[in-house]
Every structure is written in structure tokens, then in C-alpha cells.
Design a binder for these strands. Structure first.
Lengths: 147, 147
DNA sequence: ACGGTATAGTTGACTACTCAAGCAACTTTA
DNA sequence: TAAAGTTGCTTGAGTAGTCAACTATACCGT
């Protein structure tokens, strides 16, 4: 039960710090970063909006609004699907990929630093393990695109 | 590093569910609930806005806006401090305390259920332990007011 | 082929925060 | 005892998301 309170506060606190940094250094929101990240690792660097919504834990309308911004910034583009006229893919542009690479090292570094400041390696491993059992955990891979 | 991604998603997913339930059953937002909760356990059931901000991981303006709502709903009231005219306490009203009690059992039940669905007791204990080492962890007590 | 239902996405109105700026009351210092 | 600085809180404007309602396309049974 303490676990829940701590989950809330730990996440809120760390997220706030990291978001501020990401914003200051690269002009990206946390969610925008996550978006570029999942797109970069997706097949063909594109994803249906609906899949994006699931991965980012956002509603479809949230995705629409998010992508509006990213498209305006030239980091992604809208690509129509040939076989289903309803779906439009979010396609990572080269600029978007570069942006991600620029932001990636700094950001993952900060995340790592923040965790390692408070936990040792095996504890982090344990934590990942435990959190992985909670809902919302779809499998992912490593930290760096092109890594 | 996976830990971070999972922390984000686990929290987003669970929070979404629990918030919806809390809203449907008691008309409270997650943050409102947390507020009532920390006030109930505070000395004299009141807290300075600035302290509230720290505990809820909110900015002062966020607290102002939040308390506006809670005060309008009669769950808290504004009480001026006698020795320092700048500070105004948020004082939990009886109605607020009752509201908390009503919401408390259902909510803590849901939280517990959600965790226990995926983790066993010792894992939950471990998780709480690990999250407790992350920033933002100030000590708290048990789950139920008056408990 | 055609009506019914499900799915993908968008839009308008709203909520819950944030930040930057500001005011008021307190403290320090000289 | 007054200027300068600090602290507690509020306010205006903006951002990021939500929900409910909508359009458009696709699929399915008859």
C-alpha cells in the first residue's frame, strides 16, 4: 500500500526533473520524446495512431494533438495507408530521427544517473522486473535507437 | 533503463484505471483524494499550502487551484494563521473527513487488488522498498485515516 | 448489393496542471 | 525604522491531456 503512494510520488518527482531537462535542452516534452523513441524502433519507423496511443498510454485524441505538434516541427509526417483509407501512419522523418539521436544520449544519461544515484545495479534490475509485472508493460528493447 | 519506461507506463496505466473509478464512485480526482488523505493525517488536520504542494508534488499555483475546488465542495476550508498573515491553512472539514472515509476503503481496496493481481506480498514489499529510495519519498504511515 | 456494426481518426468543450509575474507580509541589516 | 530581500500565496495565459460526439471507411451476414 505504501508501494502505491511511493509509485505516485517517485514518478511525479523524477518525471518533473527529467521533463524540465528535456525541454530545456531539446525543446521536447517527455511524451514527444517517447513518441520519437517508439517510432524509431517500429517497423519502417512508422506506426498507426491507434498503436501509438496504446504504447504511450494516451487516448486517440491525445495522439492526434500530440502528432499535430510533432508534424508542425517536422519530426514526423502523416502517411496514408494504401490498403485501408481510414488509417494514417505516423512516419518518423529523418529530422525526427536525428532529433531523437541528439536527445537520446543526454536523456538516457540523465535517467541512468538519477536511478544510479539512489539504487545499485541489482536493485534497478529488480525494480524493472517488478514493474514489468504491472499492467501496461508491453515488451520493449534497449535504450538507444540504432544501438 | 527498462525500469524507467516501465515506471512510466505502469504508473500511467494503473493511475488511469484508479482515477476513473474514484471519479465514478465518489466524484474525486486522484489528487483530491491524496489531498484529503494527507490532510487527515496531518497535525490538526490542516496544512500550509506550501507543505501540501510538496507532498502532492504540485506547484503552489496548482495547490491554489486544487483547493479552490475542494473548498467549493465543502471538503476543506481556508483558515488564516494567527502569527503569520501570509499563510493560510487548508483545514479538512468534517464533511471532507467523511468523504475520505467513504472513498478510502473502496479505493485502497482497488489499489490492493490491482497490485495483488500481479505481484505477491513479498514482491510488493520489495517494490515499496525500492521506490522508497527514489526521490520524492517522504515518510508516510498506513492506509486508513482513523485506522 | 446492402444495412448494421466495428474501427480509425478528428474536433469542440473542458480539466488540471504549469510558468511567470505580482502582491502582501515577514525578516534582515544597517 | 526603513530599504532590501525572502516567503506564501494568487492570478493570467498557455499547454497537455480528457471525454463525448462526429465522420469516414471497412467488414460481415443475408
Amino acid at each position: 500500500m505504501r508501494a502505491w503512494g511511493r509509485l505516485l510520488r517517485a514518478q511525479a518527482t523524477t518525471k518533473r526533473e527529467l521533463a524540465a531537462e528535456l525541454q530545456a535542452e531539446h525543446g521536447l516534452s517527455m511524451t514527444a520524446y517517447e513518441t520519437l523513441y517508439v517510432l524509431a524502433r517500429a517497423d519502417g519507423r512508422r506506426l498507426k495512431r491507434v498503436d501509438l496511443a496504446e504504447r504511450l498510454v494516451l487516448t486517440p485524441s491525445g495522439v492526434t494533438r500530440l502528432l499535430e505538434g510533432l508534424e508542425a516541427a517536422g519530426l514526423i509526417e502523416k502517411v496514408a495507408c494504401e490498403t485501408d483509407l481510414r488509417v494514417s501512419y505516423a512516419q518518423l522523418t529523418d529530422a525526427g530521427f536525428e532529433k531523437l539521436e541528439q536527445a537520446s544520449c543526454g536523456h538516457t544519461g540523465s535517467v541512468r544517473a538519477l536511478f544510479e544515484e539512489h539504487l545499485d545495479d541489482s536493485e534497478i534490475e529488480q525494480l524493472a522486473e517488478l514493474l514489468g509485472k504491472l499492467p501496461g508493460a508491453l515488451d520493449e528493447g534497449q535504450s538507444c535507437p540504432r544501438g
